[in-house]
Amino acid sequence: MLVELVIAVVMGLLFLGIHRKVIARIQGRPGPPIWQEILHTLKFSFKETWVPRTASTLLYVGIIAVAMGIWTAALYVVLAGGSILILFGIYMLHKMVEHGVGLSPGSPYAKFGGIRSVISASSEIPLFAVIGGIYFFTGSLMISDLVAYQADNGPLLLSILPAAIAMYLVILSKMHYGPFSIVEAKEIVSGYQTEHFGVWRAGLQIGDAIKTFVLLYAFVLIFVGQLGPVLLLVAMLALLVSLSFICAVSPMLSPYDSVTVQMVAICILVVWLGVLVVIG
């Protein structure tokens, strides 16, 4: 699994770079090279690093290890074809990371980011629609079972589109520069990451990279099925570019609007799923 982990880090950083590049091109800017996030991580890892005087050292440093650790575990769950309940449990743990990173240094900007991560809990609600929809239609929550089901019955993307849209919203809410990225809005500097610099920021970047890779990979496995390496990469890239497009053309919402839009979206999706259940 070590090889897959290293691939996930490199590919994840590359995906984040492509995300920035696509947003820039859509907005008519040249944008950074697609390997910029890899260079960023390398640059941060050689920066002078210390712990701020007002920080809780254990939380300030430990939470970075947690950020990388939980997404390493998520990668294993996806590779092993484990339960999507564990995967989504880890997704919810990421909220704890955002909160911990924000509260540990003692800076008000980071603290605001941490608090916003709590009020943006509505971004997790679509997960329930995903879990409920998938379980009703397939009778299992194991990724390996879902892959086998799709090999026999075709992609779930077509049969339970609202669940796929719900998971798409979940991934969108965790993308940088997205309409729901209120935890790192510029009016609070860099949000919860404001005071994590140098090696600490590089660690968060690595966690982010694994997270991006895992979420894109999981979406393809859960809603499209098992693909060959090239097709898998193409599918993940297509998914990423569509997310980047939305991020590029939509403004970052205010915290209130972000929560409202997500709540309205999930209500519509739940009704849609209900209709599918009644019909099916």
Binding site: E48, V51, T54, G106, S107, V189, T194
Partner: peptide, 9 residues
């Protein structure tokens, strides 16, 4: 290498 610092307030 660096000394502890107060965060950006």
């Amino acid at each position: 290498k660096g000394e502890d610092d107060l965060p950006f307030m």
